[in-house]
């Protein structure tokens, strides 16, 4: 279990979080579901220390190693696909051969190994996002953060890439915190779902073990969450 207690974060006098607490189960995919502006991305930035302007009473998240799949691929345009993966590897204690194998394995998992020598500008959006998934998995991490990573993709690409991601995830079952505003995506991917809303942000509802539900249960859960999200307009 990873605990975050009494997080407070504000821009001037605008409180995004005020005494916000959250528990994340380890080795599961947890979805943070909420409308745009509900502080989802800010929360990930706090957890991963992209921002350090916040107060917190207790946090298990501080000394962990993170991988992060962003909304956009965030690849280095001047590096090849291969070098983009190499960039995040700390190569001080690994042999060249080991690094090479690690990179190629990650690329194989997203079926991008043929494109190792390509530059990002030569790839389509979906392919670039696949590379960024490979980059997230090439490095050792404790927690994987994902911020609506499949937002810009068309539906077929999205389905393909989601399944590919789940397949990769099942191989090591690390802790994943997945931010989305797409209810169906959350129900499809998540074990637990925290529904975020209000201002400052609160957890309005938590759905546990969504992955164990049968179709009727899932349909009921879906309606329930839908009602909560609708009340947030």
């Amino acid at each position: 279990m990873l605990r975050l207690e009494n997080l407070t974060k504000s821009y001037n006098d605008n409180y995004i979080f005020k005494d916000f607490s959250m528990v994340i189960e380890k080795n599961r995919i947890t979805c943070l579901l909420g409308k745009s502006g509900s502080g989802k991305t800010t929360l990930l930035n706090v957890l991963s220390s992209i921002t350090d302007e916040f107060k917190v009473k207790y946090s298990d998240f501080e000394k962990l190693r993170y991988s992060y799949i962003f909304q956009e691929p965030r690849l280095l345009e001047w590096y090849t696909v291969y070098k983009n993966l190499q960039f995040v590897l700390d190569n001080t204690h690994m042999s060249k051969q080991a690094i090479h194998e690690k990179i190629m394995d990650s690329l194989k998992m997203v079926e991008m190994e043929k494109y190792a020598d390509y530059y990002p500008y030569q790839l389509s959006g979906g392919m670039a996002q696949r590379v960024s998934i490979a980059r997230a998995f090439v490095k050792d991490f404790d927690v994987l953060l994902m911020d609506e990573p499949f937002k810009g993709l068309d539906p077929t690409q999205k389905e393909d890439i989601t399944d590919r991601f789940l397949k990769m995830w099942r191989e090591n079952r690390k802790t994943v915190i997945y931010v989305t505003h797409d209810l169906d995506e959350a129900l499809y991917m998540a074990y637990d779902i925290h529904v975020l809303g209000e201002h400052p942000t609160k957890i309005l509802y938590t759905s546990r073990n969504a992955y164990k539900m049968n179709d009727t249960e899932r349909e009921n859960e879906r309606d329930k969450i839908w009602q909560i999200l609708r009340s947030q307009i």
Binding site: N45, S48, S49, I50, R65, Y66, S67, Y68, F70, E72, R74, L76, F87, V88, D90, K139, L145
Partner: peptide, 16 residues
Amino acid sequence: RKLLDMAKVYDIRPLK
């Protein structure tokens, strides 16, 4: 800025 944030999350050394 987004690339720098990415590097920060992935804990990349300053010289790199």
